[in-house]
Design a protein around this nucleic acid. Sequence first.
DNA 1: TCGCCATTATTG
DNA 2: CAATAATGGCGA
Length: 259
Amino acid sequence: MSVADLISQSLPEACDSRDSSPLSTILEAEENDISLQMSSVEALYSDTVSPLPASIDLLLQDSPDSSTSPKVKLPTSIEKSTMKEGKGLGKKQKVRTVFSQMQLCILKDRFQKQKYLSLQQMQELSEVLNLCYKQVKTWFQNQRRNARGGKKNHTKWPNSSNGVAQKGCLPSGNLPMWSNQTWSSQTWSNQTWNNSQAWCTQAWNNQSWNNQAWNNQSQICGEEFLLPQFQQNSASDLEASQTIDLFLNDSMNIQLEEV
DNA sequence: TCGCCATTATTG
DNA sequence: CAATAATGGCGA
């Protein structure tokens, strides 16, 4: 499979992050050309994370986009043009990106701890998820809204009553606050990430996961992360995990103001 | 500029 | 039809 495919998955051209992200976001270039972006991204990462070159692309966006196993949607170019030409004329076609399970997982997890992210934090997160800053921002925006639930009960989180394993996959209790400046990256990588690894892997392995599936899954996630079966994942998965670990730590180190 | 809101449009 | 990513307007 080509990395391009994977990438395209989470490459909404709708994001004008370049415009929105003041802090020169690295990943801006990608939106333009899939092919080009690939190289740029690759270069970028390989440069940043010297040891593991392209693996990042894979694991990140790749998350076998669960959303729809059969036909991986290529939101970017193909889908767009192929869409409805009828109204696609001069209209603004929204490209509704379908975030992968992994992306959602990370997003949700983060959201549980932080409802508001600083610009840089969002950017970092976006890098990690290989999404646009704008998308992350929007996502949080929407989440905040339905988290509040107040007006329109838009989203129904799996379990809204318990504050435990409800939405996220990672039991917040075991995780160090993303934004708290105290914990060391080591702590994160050694302890927390183990869990993360598990759930990420899980996410990758179970393509069939749906948002609803989080319901059930989240519970196991809460207690039995490191199931033997998950550890038997392929090398690529492991590699991926490690990769994430790496850049995650990297981003973590950047640390800025907290909420 | 961002956040929040209401709305729109896509996806399943 | 429900869920939700993304857009645009408004205010701080």
